[in-house]
Design a protein around this nucleic acid. Structure first.
Lengths: 210, 210, 210, 210
DNA sequence: CATGAATGAGTCTTCATTCAT
DNA sequence: GATGAATGAAGACTCATTCAT
């Protein structure tokens, strides 16, 4: 059997495995999001993925590993996006960025809901997976704000506090979608929301005489 | 036996019961906050409250009832405060109000963390205990913002979005405390945070020429 | 303090104790009869006897001892009656005897129902408390039948089988009362039943030409 | 895969399940009969059926369902037999019928002992499972006796009482077997017992001059 | 003596994981 | 690789018994 043949088989096998992985993770994320990690049984995951319970264990070491894979995947997507937060310059940049965030959140709401849920409960998840990266991103944002203040573009303020409030503000916007109380906004609506959010953040709530 | 005697016995008994209730709820809230409702075992609650497992059942009908009592208690405290949200008028009012919220959150962080956690997972908790009341409070705030826009005090904006962002902003501030990542701020710090938060909300992040 | 005084106190104490014993046994028999021994809780017994759970243990060593006392008491009453089974001679004697049995069964249906129930399940109860005495009584009856056959008063038959059927026949009559499906028959009715029972037993069901 | 193959798999699966059901029910009936429903633990049932405790729950929803299945099964067997009670005409019919009853009782003594036990304690079992059907059968027998009296075949008597005594008589015969005090009679013995029973019932105990 | 709160062993049941087919 | 039956550890809850008041 020529090597390329072997590779062909091997590649096909890899693809089959990847497909199963994806199927399991997607199904599991749905159930996790709906019921919580602990309350979800492997039986439910298997049923949702339309396979036998035992089959799960051919692709993942266990329930926890399925969960971790989901979380890692969505984190990777989020972090890839957030990496570029340092590059933002114009207001349009920021609006576009917020829109993209909406986009990610709308694409994988189940995974993100699951991630948030466990990070809220499980110290290991929070520490090992999230904290380091979030801290780094928040530091970038905070640095950006601090610099803008020095440059005279932003008002003097506690940049740390401002960063937190900024993240919270954004979270407040997307929370009903994540929690499953509202459908994700359609793209045009998404743009309007991003505009409004950035606007409110920049200008404040109060009308000022000019 | 004179009636005051009877009342004396009965009253003492009531107090003893109330003390146990409080002890159990406090211990349980700690464990729930640290591990989540489902992951917490009655054995752990009993150990935390320094009593036998069976004793819990002399005071609560079951694990779920302990949890619900904790949640109801903290909700009552929160809602009592939030009820007055309609009365706020001056900027100082708002700052004071935010400070008081900080205060409540700092007093019972375990209970609130537990409440948030379960509301995030359990639809019944969210619907039956939270939504109705939160919706009403948000409606008040939204109405206030809308009115202020009409009066020309606030800039024209989507009042619904603004309300959400406002709640999110505040949540962003207190989240590290709730999550147990930071100690609650001391009262003077608390005032500074409240000032900064209200300031950022009102004036926006951006410096504007006057 | 003169001895008769002491005796007076002592006697009164004994009577008080006896009264409590009776109260507990009566109440317990009711609950046992209604729910079965295992299903009945000491809490229910205490409630039925209108006292605290702990008080039971001042009068009985435990739940099992309460039950055994009930059983012993009713057994004593039954056996006292059955002792005389050897003396029966005329048909009127037998009818009177059956009536008296009805009487005992009607007086303490709860206790008897309890006894039967446990004897049906618990080998120790059956062996230690019942078998010896029942066997002895059945032996008497069987002997009586055998003798009557020899004397030419009864038809030739398997006297062992006949004895069993006789006891079973009687059991069939009282079972609905014991099981609590029917009220105990009033005395006149009782007499009629006894007459009919003895009649059927003696003469058989079938009409015979004379 | 050809359809007969599918059916083959499915049929084999069904048979495997049926075998396990039978194994569990048989083992459980033994333990129930020996100790009573309430006193029997699922651990004991599992041990008796030589499987893990959890496995029980792959085949029955719970302990109660195991019990109910046992009861329903034996009831079905009994009732199928008793249905024909109305067809009996000659004395030989009756004797044959009694023999068949012996047969059923000897086949599943544990199940019947369990059934009787719980019907004695549990009102729901008695009412929902037994009474309706037993009442109907007793009514048939009673009607038969009453008719025979009218026809002049039986002596005048209280047919209701006679029915009860008849059932009791039969119960008295089989009770030692059911209670596990005696081995079931071998078939020839069985015939003799049936003969004797019917004879005694028909002719009575007393010798009468002809 | 009476009380009833405290105890913890023992119950039924669930479910992640293994493994024979 | 896929299956799903078997496993048994772990969990919520009950209740007979003890004991301080």
């Amino acid at each position: 059997m020529p090597p390329q043949e072997i590779n062909g088989f091997e590649a096909r096998r890899q693809r089959r495995i990847a497909r199963k992985h994806a199927r399991i993770m997607k199904s599991a994320a749905q159930v996790f999001a709906a019921k919580g990690y602990r309350t979800t049984t492997t039986r439910e995951i298997a049923r949702a993925a339309d396979m036998a319970e035992g089959t799960l264990y051919n692709y993942f070491a266990g329930k926890r590993e399925i969960f971790l894979s989901i979380v890692e995947e969505v984190l990777a997507a989020l972090l890839e996006l957030l990496e570029d937060v340092g590059q933002l310059e114009t207001r349009a940049d920021v609006v576009a960025f917020v829109e993209m965030l909406f986009d990610v959140l709308s694409t994988k709401p189940a995974s993100i809901r699951t991630l948030v849920m466990e990070a809220w409960v499980d110290d290991l998840i929070l520490q090992d997976l999230l904290m380091e990266r979030i801290v780094s991103i928040m530091a970038q944002v905070e640095g950006f704000i601090a610099a803008s203040i020095v440059e005279g573009k932003f008002r003097p303020m506690d940049s740390r506090l401002a960063t937190r409030m900024l993240f919270g503000m954004f979270a407040g916007l997307v929370l009903p979608v994540l929690r499953g109380m509202e459908a994700p906004p359609a793209p045009p609506e998404r743009h309007a929301m991003a505009e409004a959010a950035v606007n409110l953040l920049m200008e404040g709530i109060q009308l000022r005489d000019e």
